[in-house]
Write a protein that binds this DNA or RNA. Sequence first.
DNA 1: GCAAGGTC
Length: 909
Amino acid sequence: MSGTIKVLNVAEKPSVAKSVSGILSRNQALRVRDGRSRYNRIFEFNYSIRGQPCHMLFTSVTGHLMELEFEDRFRKWHSCDPLDLYHAPVRKFVPEDKLDIKRTLEEEARRCQWLVLWLDCDREGENIAFEVINVCRAVNRHLTIRRARFSALIDREIHHAMQNLIDPNPWFSDAVDARQEIDLRIGASFTRFQTMLLRDKFVIDSATDDRNLVLSYGPCQFATLGFVVERYWEVQSHEPEEFWTINCSHRSDEGVATFNWMRGHLFDYTCAVIVYEMCVQEPTATVTKVQHKEKLKYPPYPLNTIELEKRASRYFRMSSEHTMKVAEELYQAGFISYPRTETDCFSSRTDLHAIVQEQQGHPDWGSYAQRLLDPETGLWRNPGSGGHDDKAHPPIHPTKFSTGEHGWSQDHRTLYELVVRHFLACVSQPAVGAETTVEIDIAGELFSASGRVILERNYLDVYRYESWGGSMIPTYTVGQQFAPASLTLDTGVTRPPPLLSEADLLSCMDKAGIGTDATMHDHIKKLLDRFYATKDSNTRFSPTNLGEALVMGYDDMGYELWKPNLRSMMEFDMKEVSVGNKSKDEVLATCLQQMKACFFDARLNKVKLLEAMAVFFERSNRAVGGDNYAAGEVVRQCDLCQESSMVLKKNRDGNFMVGCSGFPQCRNAIWLPGSILEAAVTSNICSSCNPGPVYLIQFKFLQIEIPPGFNANHLGCIGGCDDTLRQLIEICGTGSRMSARGRGPTTTSSNGQRSSNRHNGCVHCQQTGHSSNDCPSQFSRSRNSQSHTHSENGDPSVSCSTCGMPCVLRTANTANNRGRKFYSCPSQECNFFIWEDGVSNGNDGRSIPSTNCSASNSGRRGGRGQSGRNRSHAADTTFVSATGDPVSNRCYVCGDPSHFANVCPNRGM
DNA sequence: GCAAGGTC
């Protein structure tokens, strides 16, 4: 067919591909074939777009085609500081289970000239459209790309959409991209942080195996939890208050009427008694007002997802999650319309009568359907509108008649019945009632009674879930007087509000914009799955200890991370992006910057979380392993890798250091004096160090290990400006590579060059804590040691026989001497070494043998000043292991030549 | 192992 173009059409789900294909082809010459994905078939037919003959291929995806994830090196929980997740690179990719769909799209796109996107017309749909565009355009750069805009699967609308194609809207898609990225970064960072902080520190008895417990955080799940906790606290904090009220009854031939005091109740007993005694003294009642009024009780609006969930919970105590599962199955089998819809008004184009007609044969509600269709009954009424329309799906309604199918569970029957009865109710007249209100006066106090007679039941006949209580009261006339049958002063107490029911919770979420119609039930289920909340047999939610502790912890910090505001603000920003008022990048930058600061602050205040947990849980004895990042407090951004953060940590030997959380990719580290007893990052920022912020650290030194004149408490900066800290490091040495006995005042003045290095700090990075030679940014260089073996406490002190520098205590890692300690000169220029046990035995030092040492006794030279000057010594002296493999004398963990890996302070990070 | 959002 000359001039015919091939058009690839893609819908968001298979059912839409099928429906639209059926409408466009008018079911004429419609062919179907399988794609690579078993769910997403391909429909083929011919069509003409504005006179252009087209061969149409119509397939679908199943929701999002792509996922957003961190790049691999950030995906493991201990791969980085959770703070890094605010700027770690992310990527979009097609997950394994969607690859078949991707391949279908690629294959079909290659042979098409046009791509028409039939994704749902909402923000998520637009984002999925761009996912499809990316996949298709990657294999066919010449594709003409158009968007079909439709709001219902109705013939006229679909043909109109096809003839009036528009451009896809990148702003809508951008809003979703921003939402995804923010959700991922916030969720992952807080989840890792609180899980690693709390899981191993407490015996969390709610979980079967708390080692695998994940204490997840998400803007939706925590807001949902917040509603539960807030109501629970309200209930807990309620203090019953006694009140008094006066009740009056009257009996006549027609029956009994109960009159309520129009003041309601009084909390002041004396006042109540005074009023009551006045009434008792003059008890005659005079009727002051009789009012008759017609009242209407309207049927519900057309059914959307949230109402379906709420009503199923209220009427049948069915969980929202189960409701959606059953509804999905009914939808898949064609009995009800699409169950995930916000829309609660029918389009004027919907043939409502046809839907009712289908139900006429049902044994239970068929006769009601017949009455509805009979104009003489006057029962029909065009349905009201709840004011919501997602422009993508109609309200939930029956699409196929059934009296119950083989294989349906009771829940399938119940839910189908609800959908049908709800629909029939929507198109029915409201119930009509006559209400009578009577007011009386006793000694100047007013009382009222009311009664109701239902005149027409109308929709209530089919909507049996609702009732409208009728109550009769006797006939009264104004001016009539009577003596009350009873006049009592009654007492009662105020009651707390009830715990939130599932329907209440859904209402709270809906009102605050937490989740979507398709996901709200997931968030509720997540609270149960994470052991954050429980649900009782009345569908009422209480927080567990865990849920309450988490909310309490954040609340004590003063954060509203558990309130819906965060999501609302995000939602506002998303809206701004979707209408083009703000750019995606702008919103991402602002939001993530704020959340990062919030995360940082939350971590500084983590003690609040720990305290809140301690209220409910026993401390655990379990060893905490691999939790350095959770324990580490951020001091500044790493100026070496520029990606991760420098965090204050304690090494295994108990000494403090500030290291890059990007380890081992980045080995930036600042070693702090071993004489530090306590160190904690504060929220104070150094005013002189750049790039900032550099947070000051509150140090507490062991007084006896620092010279007179220095204060044991010091608010210090590791950014390079802090002379006091520099001096203390110089005087005390660092605690990183030596055992405690290596600490103490040293003979640094004996080595002018070394002393000079320290005073000047590192020439590469300007930081204290290491010398220029030690700078992690200069790893190929040899380094001087900062450790000292001279001591004042009687421990051996060994100096290099060549240069006189204090030696470093190391541990051999060779086959013959593994674990044996020896001293060696920190300078790479000298080869001096001596076994530790040799020192105590009074042996002389010896130099490291030139080759094949294996730390054996060979190559002994003995005597000071004779160490291997005759040997050309490279920075990396090679040892040979027992297996003959060369072993570097640098630590294989951090590359530091002053120690071996078995004593590496960074091991196990 | 982490979010929330689509959908099967």
